[in-house]
Amino acid sequence: MIFIQQMINGLQIGSIYAVIALGYTMVYGIIKLINFAHGEVMMMGAYFAFLAASAGMPVWAVFLISMVGSALLGMAIERVAYKPLREAPRISALITAIGMSLFLQNLALVIFKADPKVMPRIIPTTPINIGSIQISNITIITFTVSVVFMILLTFFISKTKPGKAMRAVSEDKEAATLMGINANSTITLTFAIGSALAALGGILYALAYTQVAPTLGVLPGLKAFVAAVLGGIGIIPGAMIGGFILGFVETFAKAYISGRWADAIVFGILILVLSVKPTGILGKNVREKV
């Protein structure tokens, strides 16, 4: 019974990681940049939701405001910080991403102060009993909402024109530009979608843990990144698989090994993956061209 209960917990946290990991992987796929600020966009999304919910808005408006707000934030970050560095050495872009992450975190610290805020219960919690297993409705909502958005994203990327443009740009930016695709706006769109998904993860995370703080994005952000690497960075289904695997590993480590060692185990997996199969579960080996 405990096993099934833990399984369900893992599914909840895993779906949050998966949603955040999607943003990492999409951005990496298109401009080969580890967007360290992604976790902070998630944190900002949670704060947007907190502000909207505190103003007494309905649930759908809270989600909408947070996701649109974060999408705009993501686009702004891309335009201001990353776009000027597109032709620069990768290490410069990487350092900028870290700078951006720190900047947002400390901006939140100055604006919202360090003490955690209690997230209003926009969705009343009701436990659902199935046999001897108790599931919170938040768990079910988290899982359902994440899966719906993952399906929407998969459909968007494989079937719609902007989605195809996105795949084309990540395949070969120069060739895509020659085919008449506007690479810059496609990259901006990728940041917008990734950031909106991060905000979704942020809201679901804040609902699960009922509080919002400026450091909220750090650990889930890092773990979602591990999930993206685990699944194969740059590969969208990989991020989903990686997210769920990481969610399971973390909850089982907490339940059966030790809560205090869980984080070390999660990052240990990262090191293990990189030493055994650095391209991740779904990754293929790519030959390097000179």
Partner: peptide, 14 residues
């Protein structure tokens, strides 16, 4: 302090 550090870092890189 850290706000300024991070700002300097981004501006410096650009």
């Amino acid at each position: 302090r850290l706000l300024i550090y991070s700002f300097v870092l981004v501006v410096m890189m650009i």
